[in-house]
Design a protein around this nucleic acid. Sequence first.
DNA 1: TCCCGAAGTTCGATTTAAATG
DNA 2: GCATTTAAATCGAACTTCGGG
Lengths: 349, 349
Amino acid sequence: MVTIRDVAKESGFSSTTVSIVLNNAPLARYIPPATKNKIEHAAHKLGYRPNQFARSLRSKRSHTVGVMVFDMTDPYCTLVLRGIENTLYQASYLPILTDVHNERSRFERYLELLLDRRIEGLIVLANWLFLDINLLGDLEKSRIPTAMIGCELKTDSISSVIVDNELGGYLALEHLYSLGHRKIAFIRGPRALIDSSPRWRGIRRCARHYELELDPRLVVDLPESRDPLSSFEAGQKLTEELIRLKHSFTALLAFDDMSAFGAIRALNHAGIRVPEHCSVIGFDDVATSALYTPSLTTVRQPMEAMGESAVKIVINGINAVLEKRNGVGASHHKVAPELVARESTRKLV
Amino acid sequence: MVTIRDVAKESGFSSTTVSIVLNNAPLARYIPPATKNKIEHAAHKLGYRPNQFARSLRSKRSHTVGVMVFDMTDPYCTLVLRGIENTLYQASYLPILTDVHNERSRFERYLELLLDRRIEGLIVLANWLFLDINLLGDLEKSRIPTAMIGCELKTDSISSVIVDNELGGYLALEHLYSLGHRKIAFIRGPRALIDSSPRWRGIRRCARHYELELDPRLVVDLPESRDPLSSFEAGQKLTEELIRLKHSFTALLAFDDMSAFGAIRALNHAGIRVPEHCSVIGFDDVATSALYTPSLTTVRQPMEAMGESAVKIVINGINAVLEKRNGVGASHHKVAPELVARESTRKLV
DNA sequence: TCCCGAAGTTCGATTTAAATG
DNA sequence: GCATTTAAATCGAACTTCGGG
């Protein structure tokens, strides 16, 4: 491996000068162009690449950000990760990706490993998380700029980026209502999931606004499960149940896209066509939704933008630390979702 | 930050001894338990964590593996990444994730960044790659144990893990044939895609074996595109085309799951029910396939196992480098796919 | 020779202080 | 003081060598 000393020898200057020139340090303005040229030429000729370990050791910087995902297989992750990656790339940071598999032990181990690597920031993708309050404690004492995506927080040491779940719930119901649906079934999220209650609140607010009465016999809850894909099966089972009970409905509002897919499957098996006989709406707009048959009407979370937003918050935090203005507290972004009307819903005739 | 010298001071021993004890180095066997206890106690009391920069600088090891994905949004990636992550975790390596977005410039930039970080191994997820031969040159001269997933290679400096595409094609057609289908439409992969021709070869071999005649009017090709999701739209368009031409078929064999989804959408819009009027089979078994309505019969690539396999190859390579037995050439794994029969295909009546 | 511990060097870059003309 | 350059200290851990019992 070629070191700065090799470049020094090759160019005939000291390693100090080489360092100053190649980093374009403040002192470089005193160095005559001729010298700079020789040094740059020598560096290029030898194919010199500075050793990041040595550099980091001195500068105490790693230019690395940790990314913790609670479950990679959740289709929700993909686009968020893309947003994170792309924004980090532009800022010349590299991500270390860790997948916690929804296990506490794994979370702790990874957090330790990341801290050992002196990550400068941390982004936690806490979708489908059954919030364990201790987790936050671990995170807080790490003293590293941290942003959590998909999980509302009141802390002011950890930033958060979430979708406005209440607005999303409102939009979903409003869409069905505007299509003429009055008898609507609901699959709510698991009690313990943090997204569940604001979405339901939005739904009720919308119902009140339009003076629509919600039939409690048409409301079912997803069970708790560590596996995000499980909401597909649960959605299917719950819908079968709803069908069996024969309290008729012309539309179904599912907690998320996965449970909506499950519902469509169940309806289909029962000979109920979507959207001809029953409209279905989901939440999230995962990649599959546009590809489904029928394509799924849903409430889109701007996932890529959320990833981008989290990175920007974290990089701000990093810069604040560097400039020793420790004033910037945590910021909490709540982004607006957007209704995407597709084939799975239609006007009631 | 607490350093090894702080621990030395606290425990009353020199930093040398502390280092030996905490790393359980060979010399540690001479050190009396009492000393070890004191040192460990002091380290724990101070919350000492060795500085990885300093450590890496000395040892020249990073315990880091680079992972390059050509397009994160390809649903094919998810499970492979899970396999990679999990296997690295068990071996105490951390992954740096980079997404090349199918752009050459991004590939080069990322490769440089990863090399600067002294990654010890590299895993390239080259699905949906329109193989640019120069790419390999860059990779080869990096001199780092590298495994490429999803791209057949003859090089013996870069390992590869691929699915047996020919076998997969064979299995797909055999499945349709065994269900009684004789008039079968085919959506082939893009010419430039490396997977396309072996899959088609397998299909033809199967046809020969069963003396099935393939109707060239029922064979269409996906266009080339950088975007893996585009094969959905293309699949839909091509299927619409096939329908319009009115050369009837009772089954359709798609190049991959995405194009199969597109085909199902087109068939559905034309009033052709799947599987009642037409069977459809895909390739890959992405997560969505099991959730689709109807659930998709497909040829499964063991993606998680492929990720695991790539990591094991790379770690083997790393160990070989460490032990200076540079004997291990590249290894090329070809794993068998597996037919997964679901709802989208059924017996011809 | 075995056991125990420490002083000093090394990894490769950055930075401070200082030395030249 | 100014422009130009550099010797030496530093970051934190690990390893080599050495001395004394």
